[in-house]
Amino acid sequence: MHPCERVGIDYVDSAPHRFTNSVDLAITPEQLFQVFADAEAWPRWATVIRHVEWTSPLPPGVGSTRVVSMLGGLKGAEEFLLWEPGRRMGFRFNEASERSIRAFAERYDVEPKAQGCRLTWTLALEVNGPGKHLMPLSGLVSNLSFRWFLRRLRRYTDERFATVS
């Protein structure tokens, strides 16, 4: 593992590369945080994620840590900078298996709605090396994936929290 810059949560508003997408979910903000805390849920909707392991005691909170394993062998050792159930959460990579990741952070903002909640997900990063020059193109492709992940999250939460009438 290689160290990443230990950015603060404000990094998601100032990073060189930022991706923000939203989705309306037919669940409560509290139910969404059940999904966020569930290590087995992440690969179900964010299919780039293969495995999530909490490396600190649950329930999660500020300072909690986990390791996320992704497609292509990428691993990120994450530390939670925000954990406000029903409102927002965010984390950064403290270390990554790829030396090219200089800094990485995500923030999830949740807004209650009459029929559920709206999730706004912001992913922010900076890369070193040749990948830095490819970010404009790879970023467009990545952002399409992030939108697809949110559609999958909607399907997953619809199924997970379906009620029988």
Rank of each mutant, 00 (worst) to 15 (best):
Met1Asp: 12
His2Cys: 06
His2Glu: 08
His2Asn: 14
Pro3Trp: 02
Glu5Pro: 09
Tyr11His: 14
Tyr11Arg: 09
Asp13Gly: 14
Ser14Leu: 11
Ala15Tyr: 11
His17Ala: 15
Thr20Ile: 06
Thr20Pro: 08
Ser22Gly: 14
Ser22Trp: 08
Val23Trp: 06
Asp24Gly: 09
Leu25Pro: 00
Leu25Trp: 04
Ala26Cys: 05
Ile27Asn: 07
Gln31Phe: 00
Gln34Trp: 10
Gln34Ala: 14
Ala37His: 03
Pro43Arg: 02
Ile49Arg: 02
Val62Tyr: 10
Gly63Met: 07
Ser64Leu: 06
Ser64Asn: 04
Ser64Val: 06
Thr65Arg: 15
Val67Met: 00
Val68Glu: 05
Ser69Val: 02
Ser69Tyr: 08
Leu71Pro: 02
Leu71Met: 13
Leu74Lys: 09
Gly76Trp: 11
Ala77Asp: 00
Glu78Ile: 01
Glu78Trp: 01
Phe80Trp: 15
Leu81Lys: 02
Leu82Ser: 01
Glu84Arg: 10
Pro85Tyr: 00
Pro85Val: 02
Gly86Cys: 01
Arg88Tyr: 00
Arg88Phe: 00
Met89Asp: 02
Met89Cys: 13
Phe91Asp: 08
Phe91Asn: 06
Glu95Phe: 05
Ala96Arg: 01
Glu98His: 12
Glu98Ala: 15
Glu98Gly: 05
Ser100Pro: 05
Arg102Cys: 05
Arg102Lys: 14
Phe104Asn: 09
Asp109Ser: 13
Asp109Phe: 03
Glu111Tyr: 13
Glu111Ile: 12
Pro112Leu: 03
Gln115Trp: 02
Gly116Val: 04
Cys117Asp: 08
Cys117Phe: 05
Cys117Met: 06
Arg118His: 07
Trp121Gly: 00
Thr122Ala: 09
Thr122Asn: 13
Leu123Tyr: 12
Leu125Val: 03
Val127Lys: 08
Gly129Met: 04
Pro130Ser: 04
Pro130Tyr: 11
Pro130Ala: 07
Pro130Glu: 05
Lys132Thr: 07
Leu134Cys: 04
Pro136Ile: 08
Leu137Gly: 09
Gly139Glu: 02
Val141Leu: 15
Leu144Ser: 07
Leu144Cys: 06
Ser145Gln: 15
Arg147Gly: 15
Arg151Ser: 10
Leu153Gln: 00
Arg155His: 06
Tyr156Met: 00
Thr157Trp: 02
Glu159Phe: 03
Arg160Cys: 05
Ser165Gln: 12
